[in-house]
Design a protein around this nucleic acid. Structure first.
Lengths: 197, 197
DNA sequence: AACGCAATTTGACAGTGTCAAGATTGATGG
DNA sequence: CCATCAATCTTGACACTGTCAAATTGCGTT
C-alpha cells in the first residue's frame, strides 16, 4: 500500500502501529527503533521527528493502553445486568485475564521501564492518575453498596485492592507462580479476602 | 589492594560484589559487563568464564538476594516476643520497607528481566520455590492461629497475600502511586483486609 | 520558477553483549 | 629445576543498540 516515497505521509501513526505489533510479538525488549523503522520502510532516525526519545514513544503507547484499559473497565463498571457483588467479581476476573492475555502490553503500562525514566511524559502520568482516580471513585461506590468494607479510607482501600490485583497479575505474568496456577481459584480467593464479609 | 596481575585470584566474588554495588547505585539497567570488568580491573570478556550469560550473573545475584530475604523474614516469623497478630503486621511492614529500601535489588529478584529469560537458572527457580513454600507453610500456621481466614486454601491464600504485598511494593517502588503515599497507612489497610476479622 | 521549510536520509559515535582465537600464568610431574 | 598443561585472562571482531549533526529531498506557497 505504502510506496517508497520520500514523504511517508502518515509516519507517526505507522510507527505507533508497528510498535504495537512489535510489542505483542516479542515484548518491550524486542522493540528497537531501527527494526521499527525497517518495518515501516523508513530510515533509522526518522522516528526522532515524532518522538524525542525511544522512551517517549513507549510512553505514548502506554497512554493509548491506559485509554483502552479504562474503556474496557468502564464496560464492567456500568453493566447494570449484574449485582454489585457480581460486578466486582467480574472486574477481578477481567483484570487478571486481560492482564495475562495482553501481558506484554501490561508490562509496558505498569512496568518499570517507563515510570523510572525521568523523561516520562507528564501526559502519561496525568492519564494514569486519571485512571487511578476513577478507581478510587468506583471503590467509594462499592463501599457504599457494601461490597467493600466501609470502614476503610477509600483512597487507601483503592490502593490496596489495586495492589492485590496488580501483584497477582505480575506474579502470574512473570511466571513466578508455577505455571499451572488456576486463575479462577486465585480470583475467588482474592475476592473473598477483599470483599466485605 | 588488587594489583594488575594476570590472575586476579578471586574474580568470581569480585564480580558479584561489584555487580551488587552497581545495582544499588544505578539499578539493573546500569549494570553492564564491560563497566563491571572495568571496575574490577579486568578485561571485558573475563566474566564469561564464570557466568555463561549476563543473565546468569543476574540470576546468581537474585538468588543471593532471596537467601538474605528469607533470613530477614525468618527473624520476624520466629520472634516470640510478639503476638501472632503483631507478628503478621510486623511482617507486612517489614516487607514494604525492605522492598522500598532495597528497591533496585527487589527489582532484580522479582522483576521480569530474569524470569522471562529462558536461560533462567534452575537454581534460581528452585530457591524462589523454596521461599514461596515456606511462605505457604507460615500462612498455614497463621490460619491455625486465627490471624488469617481458616476457610481458604492455604496455597491460594499465600498466593493472594503475597500478591498484595508484591503489588503494593511494585506500585510504590515504580512511583505509580503518588510519592507522598504514607506507607504506614497502606500497611494498616492491607492488614485489615487480609487478616481474619 | 524559485524559494522556504518540513520530512527524511546519511554518516558518525559511543555504547552494549558475545564469540573465537590468542596470550599469560600458576601448578604439576619428570 | 624446568618443561608441560590446563585454567585464566586478553585482544580482536561482529552485530546490535540509541542518538546527534549535517546533508538531502520534495511539497506547498509566493
Amino acid at each position: 500500500m505504502k510506496k517508497a516515497r520520500y514523504h511517508h505521509g502518515d509516519l507517526r501513526h505507522s510507527l505507533i502501529k508497528a510498535a504495537r505489533d512489535m510489542i505483542k510479538e516479542g515484548g518491550i525488549e524486542a522493540v528497537s527503533l531501527r527494526k521499527l523503522a525497517d518495518r515501516v520502510g523508513v530510515s533509522r532516525t526518522a522516528a526522532y521527528h515524532y518522538f524525542k526519545d525511544k522512551n517517549i514513544l513507549l510512553c505514548t503507547l502506554a497512554q493509548e493502553g491506559f485509554h483502552i484499559w479504562q474503556e474496557e473497565a468502564d464496560r464492567i463498571f456500568q453493566d447494570e445486568k449484574m449485582s454489585h457483588e457480581d460486578r466486582y467479581k467480574a472486574y477481578i476476573r477481567w483484570y487478571m485475564t486481560y492482564a495475562l492475555e495482553n501481558a506484554e502490553y501490561y508490562d509496558l503500562m505498569f512496568g518499570r521501564a517507563i515510570w523510572k525514566q525521568n523523561t516520562a511524559t507528564e501526559n502519561l502520568k496525568a492519564t494514569a492518575y486519571d485512571v487511578f482516580q476513577k478507581q478510587v471513585a468506583i471503590t467509594r461506590q462499592w463501599q457504599k453498596y457494601g461490597v467493600l468494607p466501609a470502614g476503610e479510607d477509600s483512597l487507601r482501600l483503592a490502593q490496596v485492592t489495586w495492589g492485590t490485583l496488580h501483584g497477582l497479575a505480575r506474579l502470574l505474568i512473570d511466571g513466578i507462580y508455577s505455571d499451572d496456577s488456576p486463575i479462577d481459584e486465585i480470583c475467588d480467593c482474592a475476592a473473598n479476602l477483599l470483599m466485605d464479609k
